[in-house]
Design a protein around this nucleic acid. Structure first.
Lengths: 225, 225
DNA sequence: CTAAATATCACATCAAAGGGTGATTGACAC
DNA sequence: GTGTCAATCACCCTTTGATGTGATATTTAG
């Protein structure tokens, strides 16, 4: 990671050896210009170019080599998430902050998977946005509160969940392991030299214990541990 | 520092209808008393009790019913992470913020898995700590910058990975994501406002492209990447 | 020793998943 | 403007999965 360490004092003082170079990708002209004005009007921040589409961004990014990209998700043509994938594939050192109106869970995780390291809602006040850009540039991952909570909660297991290992019998665990490897019932039966009916019975009990209804849910349940 | 989303008025007003009730668990007496003094000296925060060990905390928590717990990780006897597990099992609504000196990756994820929803380094300045407590209490997940980045980066896949991405169309990927979350065909159809037949068509093509025959195999294939 | 837990099997029924084949529309490239 | 591809939908059919309601033998713990 090649982050350039700008002591905070420098920014406060207003004597910048270097400002953070930012690119904006946002299709709404009003928002785009608003952001650009904000950034260019603030000490320590610099936005030489603002794009209205992902495609335009991918061209301009080669010219301007920004350190931070503010990326809208809903763009015409290629969307913001796909754009992040392209950017990070070629310029992995560029930090991307997603900017969006809704805290859609799916979009959050797709963005993070794509390589974005910041995620703000558009309702974020200007001062906080600038703070967040600085934080992103200094190796942090600024997120709106509700976003951060969703991210953190993907790690927490449900509290009532008493590790399935302890409640499943050895045989059940054995069958579950085949189940989660994609074996068909008949294959499990053949593998263990038991009847397919027995396999069914075990699986029924496993589902009851794990509080799931399908093989896929059981698999997802297992993966959390 | 992750930024906060509290209505500004609450902070400015300074007159709280209710303060946030906080419990401290910290073995170092100096730090413990320092924190307590800080909290009790600030409007909107209240710390009726501070414990020196996890065991003491588990007793006191029943008496004082705090809304937020500040938890040191390195404690004598039961450590802070184990203590979080106990707390969240019985009082899942209590919000726990880990407080530690080092940003040890392993400890971070163990803590989050245990159910902590905030994670600050001890070097955090007092004002930020109070901000973070408020954020935690309001449904956010405050984390020190370097912590947040580590958390976020667990989602990012290596950039070179493009095997399944390139061959699946965006729509197919979308459907695959629902598929791998355990949605039924009919549920996917309802979610995307398309016919179940279309869902089936897409899934057939996905299976062809991924060289698999069942949902489970497709899921396993995804997980490898 | 008795009760509970475990492992085994059977039959019936319905829902869901997957395969084959074919068709229409719109977008985009050559 | 022709061909390709993505996305949409339809019908038929087979296999697999899930659930309900049984049963029997063995082991284990109180």
């Amino acid at each position: 990671m090649t982050f350039i360490n700008i002591p905070l004092e420098d920014k406060v003082r207003g004597i910048m050896s270097e400002s953070i170079k930012i690119m904006i990708v946002e299709d709404d002209q009003a928002v785009r210009e608003g952001l650009r004005t904000l950034i260019n009007g603030s000490d320590g921040f610099n936005c030489p170019v603002a794009c209205a589409s992902a495609e335009e961004a991918l061209e301009q990014i080669q010219v301007h080599e920004p350190q931070v990209v503010l990326m809208d998700i809903n763009l015409p043509g290629m969307n913001g998430i796909e754009c992040v994938v392209c950017i990070k594939n070629t310029w992995p050192e560029i930090q991307v902050m997603m900017l969006t109106v809704f805290d859609n869970t799916d979009e959050i995780f797709k963005s993070l998977t794509a390589g974005a390291t910041g995620y703000l809602l558009k309702k974020t006040p200007p001062a906080r946005l600038l703070e967040a850009i600085t934080e992103l540039h200094n190796g942090g991952s600024p997120m709106s509160g509700e976003i951060a909570r969703k991210v953190v909660q993907t790690f927490s297991r449900p509290v009532n969940h008493k590790i399935p290992d302890t409640i499943l019998t050895p045989r059940e665990e054995e069958i579950l392991s085949y189940l989660s490897k994609g074996f068909l019932y008949k294959e499990i039966a053949a593998e263990l030299f038991i009847s397919i009916e027995t396999v069914r019975t075990h699986i029924r009990k496993i589902y009851q214990k794990l509080q799931v209804r399908t093989r896929t849910e059981a698999l997802l349940m297992c993966m959390k541990h």
